[in-house]
């Protein structure tokens, strides 16, 4: 398979800060790729490296096999949906969408027709004459998407595009983005700090921490088989057991991850004390302390909820205790 975007040992340093540190990524053509990480982990800088707003301090970035060394943003076949949408306030929606085509020298009638089609694609037909300031956040988001897509980019970059939307709209847009990506077959590179968003939308996820990629894989791999404690901790609220506790439990000195839904509260197992409980809809979150380690167990609807201060016993299937590399 052709690689749409390839990072080879790419770094970006700001003074002494290594925003991106020796990153290697291979994003396949047509892939929906998510870059996930906390703020300041280097994921947005990686996106800006692809877009061309930043140049790597060392290493190389290639788009469809072509090195992007010294290629300015306006000569790259990638387009970006910005976090703040960055719609041009002095242009109406139609001219915003047609901007890229106008710069490319397309005649007015052609580019307006293409812009209309792009607006229909994002379900905003008939909004062309409005100014961006007259639109809601969700509508601006769609215009930004149309403005990028109308140029038929080889890679579409999305910088936390759903960050400013409310929950319901966000879920709807997640669905729509996925459908759109399948339909157009364009490679999407998506930056987010929301693990739920990354896991539900992407074909593959790269988890960033302190400028490095700590794990790349399919959402299931990231969720069920975290390779390092950071991933287990950051992606969903997984219990991370310290090496001392793992040694006591199964005789191996290593960090281990245990998903809360795998923890069963019952008559047998390891003794623990209930610290707090909170109702979260389909289940109840029970915080317990086991051998001086704070852990979370999810008790599904319909089962007895222990009271705070209760002595309980925890158990899990041996398969659910997932060993991770020490350290990292």
């Amino acid at each position: 398979m052709t690689s749409a975007v390839r990072f080879t040992g790419a770094s970006r340093h700001f003074g002494s800060v290594r925003a991106v540190d020796e990153v290697d990524i291979d994003i396949a053509e047509g892939e929906f790729f998510a870059m996930l990480g906390p703020s300041g982990s280097g994921k947005t800088t990686c996106l800006r490296l692809i877009a061309g707003f930043e140049q790597p301090s060392s290493g190389d970035i290639a788009i469809f096999g072509q090195s992007m060394q010294g290629v300015p943003p306006y000569r790259r076949q990638v387009n970006t949906v910005f976090q703040d949408y960055a719609l041009f306030p002095h242009l109406n929606v139609l001219d915003n969408v047609a901007y890229g085509l106008m710069i490319a020298g397309s005649p007015k009638a052609d580019r307006h027709r293409a812009a209309q089609e792009a607006l229909e694609l994002v379900a905003l037909p008939g909004y062309g004459k409005r100014k961006p300031s007259e639109l809601s956040g969700g509508q601006r988001q769609r215009v930004a998407l149309a403005r990028a897509l109308v140029n038929k980019p080889k890679v579409l970059l999305l910088d936390e595009p759903l960050g400013a939307l409310d929950l319901k709209l966000r879920e709807q847009m997640q669905e729509e983005l996925k459908v759109l990506q399948r339909k157009l077959g364009i490679t999407f590179v998506f930056v987010t700090h929301d693990q739920g968003e990354a896991l539900s939308m992407a074909d593959r996820v790269a988890v960033f921490n302190e400028g490095k990629i700590v794990q790349v894989g399919r959402p299931e791999d990231i969720y069920y088989r975290p390779e390092v404690p950071f991933v287990a901790d950051f992606v969903g609220s997984s219990n991370v057991l310290p090496p001392t506790l793992t040694e006591k439990l199964i005789g191996r000195r290593s960090h281990a991850a245990l998903r809360p839904e795998a923890v069963k509260i019952g008559p047998q197992g390891h003794a623990a004390v209930v610290r707090a409980t909170s109702f979260i809809g389909a289940a109840t979150r029970v915080s317990v302390t086991m051998a001086e380690t704070a852990m979370i167990a999810l008790v599904p609807k319909g089962q007895a909820i222990p009271a705070i201060g209760d002595q309980v016993h925890l158990s899990w299937d041996a398969d659910d205790l997932h060993l991770m590399e020490p350290g990292a």
């Binding site: 306006y74 970006t80 960055a86 719609l87 306030p89 901007y99 140029n151």
Partner: peptide
Amino acid sequence: SGSLIEASMDLGADSFQTFRHV
């Protein structure tokens, strides 16, 4: 907003075109 300039560059406009159109 500074991202307007980046958006313009992203959409294919060089510095002069960005100055003129944005």
